[in-house]
């Protein structure tokens, strides 16, 4: 409750461009959320469906007729793939962001509060992870996990979790370290509070504000990485779910033969959702960051002052 109030407080005070950015972003993201949640009803066919009522779909059919956006060379309905792809994308992103957020928060808090060698080792590991190019790291983990648990939503989410974990860890650890030195933490210790209480009741609420912003900014990034994984064939197998990146890579060959509809729509979906998530992230950033935030001030008219 307390945390929510502190996180939401700045919203009421924003105006102008950042508010519009936020609004536009929210509309775009909401559109995809609707697609993802209502995929069963919105998509005419399943993501791996090649026939309906015993009739096989045509291969590479042009948009129109039974297939709104046509079909691809695997006989799949493009529009259905786009809709189901939204579900996959959002599932992976939500899982990955939530995973790295929770893990990063917990590790950062403990590492920052406990300090010592525990902290040093974690920082070293996280810095090493951070230094890797995200895509490379995701590929490596994608490979390893695909071997162990198969190339599904969970493994894609897990490899993205590893990629984004260091960011949360670093932010949370650094703000924990500065909060640890603050008087109110010392006051809590003076009251006799044990370490666990200090972390959960005094540090948690004060280091959490930066997290949602990184979350939304990362979400956009994560989607890009996911698409790249799919493009390289390390994402979700076509039979496990619809993956925009995978569809895009399939469509590559089609483009040279003048078949545009197999790639354009999944590509557009990727671009649009990334844009939406970025707008939400930047909008939030400007809203929450007090330096960037422009407060709503009331204009004072000259006549008012002369009473």
């Amino acid at each position: 409750m307390a945390v929510m109030r502190r996180v939401l407080a700045p919203f009421r005070e924003t105006v102008g461009f950042s508010r519009w950015m936020l609004l536009a972003g929210i509309v775009i993201v909401a559109f995809f959320v609707v697609l993802a949640v209502g995929a069963e009803w919105i998509a005419p066919y399943g993501y791996a469906q090649k026939s309906a009522d015993g009739v096989d779909f045509p291969k590479l059919a042009e948009p129109g007729g039974d297939h709104l956006l046509g079909t691809d060379r695997l006989f799949f309905d493009v529009w259905s793939r786009v809709v189901w792809g939204a579900r996959t994308a959002l599932e992976v992103i939500v899982l990955a962001v939530a995973g790295s957020m929770i893990l990063g928060l917990a590790l950062g808090l403990v590492s920052g509060y406990v300090g010592g060698w525990f902290d040093r080792i974690l920082v070293l590991v996280m810095d090493a992870l951070y230094a890797f190019p995200p895509l490379l790291l995701a590929i490596v983990f994608g490979f390893l996990l695909a071997d162990k648990i198969g190339a599904g939503v969970v493994s894609a989410a897990l490899s993205l979790t590893v990629v984004y974990l260091p960011q949360y860890f670093r932010v949370v650890r650094n703000s924990t370290i500065s909060a640890r030195e603050s008087t109110y933490v010392e006051a809590a210790r003076a009251l006799g509070a044990p370490g666990r209480t200090v972390i959960t009741r005094y540090l948690f609420g004060n280091v959490i504000h930066s997290v949602p912003v990184i979350g939304t900014l990362n979400a956009a990034d994560a989607l890009g990485t996911l698409a790249a994984l799919g493009f390289l064939g390390l994402g979700i197998q076509p039979t496990d779910g619809a993956d925009w990146g995978f569809d895009l890579s399939r469509a590559l060959d089609d483009a040279s033969s003048g078949i545009w509809w197999t790639g354009v729509f999944s590509g557009a979906a990727i671009v649009l959702l990334i844009t939406g998530l970025t707008l939400v992230g930047e909008g939030l950033n400007e809203t929450i960051n007090p330096v960037l935030r422009k407060k709503r001030l009331q204009k004072i008219r000259r006549e008012e002052t002369i009473r």
Binding site: R6, S182, T183, Y184, A187, R201, Y202
Partner: peptide
């Protein structure tokens, strides 16, 4: 500093 001695989130 009374402002610093209280947890702002409590």
């Amino acid at each position: 500093d009374p402002s610093a001695a209280l947890n702002p989130a409590m």
